[in-house]
Amino acid sequence: MSAPVLRVEGLSKRFAAPGGGVIGAVNDVSFTLAAGETLGLVGESGSGKSTLGRCVLRLTAPSEGRVIFMGQDITSVPEARCRPLRANMQMVFQDPWAALNPRMTARDLIEEPLMLHTRLSRAERRDEATRLGLRVRLPSAMLDRYPSELSGGQQQRVCIARAIATKPALIVLDEPTSSLDLSVRAGILDLLAELKEETGAAMLFITHDLGTLRLMADRVMVMYLGRVVEQATAAEVFERPAHPYTQALMSAHLPADPAVPLARHVLRGEIPSPINLPPGCGFASRCPVAIPACRERLPPLEELAPGHRAACLRVADGGNRIPS
């Protein structure tokens, strides 16, 4: 495996809570992402997935830890010096309607990264935008429209064309399909899967949809309350989830085969407030296999098998399986 495109070490992001106190949105997260690899980032709303994505791209400054992109520590580089790097790291946002400037045509929007990062002439940019448009299956007639004149799926295609325009080494996709209709979603996912093969870009794919995850991700990182609770290859996570939270999450995913027996683990209890977190495992309040020690000690992320790591105290004594 080649040198990682992205290495994140001990990244934390804290926000001041409105009423005093501190919200730990992301806590001590480390991972690497190799060229051509897609890392799926799953977790429920508020688990810090999007904040992590934004920290990686330096759209917000992390509170702690380091982000090393293509061998360069970008954690404390001033924004002006980050700008040339942005040709190599792009983002696709959740809501394409909000992410597109309503006063620019699709063509202007697709040409913008080319204008900022390449020395192409006006005519060459035009040709390249047309080519990119066709690549994401937007006919060139569509390119002269404004975002308000495009459908949600077409808007997201514009966003994707923008993101791949400069052939970036890393693309962060923040729930790129969750605001789209199901029928449109399939088309966008197909396109993304094709682009993944074609461009060789590393992708950080943020989602809460397990079907999408299964289709796109090579490796999966599960987050709960700002912490990574499990990290493994996609196959491992779907077949042998170790952390009780991952098990519950995977049981919520309906397999396409109706003959497969379902093991449903419905979680009870509340997520603790992210303000001033309790000392132990964040999941202890909802965990069916929690023991008293879980509420006192933070479980470290430990390797169970090569490439498979989970943060659960019960893994050691084998009590981490939720009985069905």
Binding site: L59, A87, A98, E112
Partner: peptide, 17 residues
């Protein structure tokens, strides 16, 4: 703080633009 401004930052736009 809107998304398209964040998208513009992510695309590498200088502040003036």
């Amino acid at each position: 703080n809107g998304t398209f401004v964040e998208a513009a930052v992510a695309a590498g736009n200088p502040t003036r633009r």
